[in-house]
Design a protein around this nucleic acid. Structure first.
Lengths: 127, 127
DNA sequence: CGGGAAGCTACCATCGGTGTCAGGTTCGGG
DNA sequence: CCCGAACCTGACACCGATGGTAGCTTCCCG
């Protein structure tokens, strides 16, 4: 498929898809005239990429782990090097901290919301 | 206390503390000569601010919810307006989505790490 | 009172994914 | 063949918290 369809099907802008390619995250064959031609598997791959971006990983990190993921494009996988594993472990810890922050902040929001709803901070009923 | 001590005690840079003030998040009395003078409660407040920043809230949003938080500086609180509640609810949903993304991405990382550690996720085929 | 530590303001830089525009080329149905 | 839709490359802008520098002032201990 071409870039327009891929964008539509993934909800990712064409701009971003080209950026992913530039970062080495997403390969594409080219037509004679230079237009990108994506395989079906590209849809899943873009979804994966989006997830990792959403988790705050940098494109360079994603670049390194993509070949180590299962079913990244159906083929067999590479194995992460010890160095990469170390990096991913650090990333994992960062994610854990972020989740903790989010949970705590969500509680704060809930408290403010509950208070405004006339319920002093003990979550029982919602209006 | 002055800004240096507050920075030390909260782990937040002086630069950021001045930024918080500029954004209306953190008030400070001034000495004759113009130096900032913070009360003890500022430490807690900065911690709160950091948590909310860490959760991805913008300073403008933090500005609006700070007066609605308990013990923000020990005094009585304002009650969030319906409009603010709506905004906070949206923010809450965003946080929920972010947490989901993080959990999923963490699983991905764990899988890659586990695979590299010699433990294939499903011991059916070993290449 | 002198001098070094600490503060002040103001400004510019950075990061990185994404939006957007401009100007040109390719594609493909009618 | 023609033309509009789709695509191409390249460049610039943005967001927003934070880092850093420069040049000057204030603070406070000795």
């Amino acid at each position: 498929m071409r870039i327009g369809e891929l964008a539509r099907r993934t909800g990712v802008s064409e701009r971003s898809l080209r950026y992913y390619e530039q970062q080495g995250l997403l390969a594409a064959r080219r037509t004679e005239g230079g237009h990108r031609e994506y395989p079906e598997a590209a849809v899943d791959r873009v979804v994966h990429i989006q997830e990792l971006f959403a988790a705050g990983l940098h494109s360079r990190t994603i670049y390194k782990i993509l070949p180590c993921m299962r079913d990244s494009d159906g083929g067999p996988n590479e194995i992460a090097t010890p160095l990469l594993v170390e990096e991913l472990t650090a990333e994992r810890e960062r994610i854990d901290r972020t989740i903790s922050d989010l949970l705590r902040s969500r509680e704060v929001l809930d408290e403010v919301i509950a208070t405004a709803s006339g319920q002093p901070p003990s979550p029982s009923e919602a209006a």
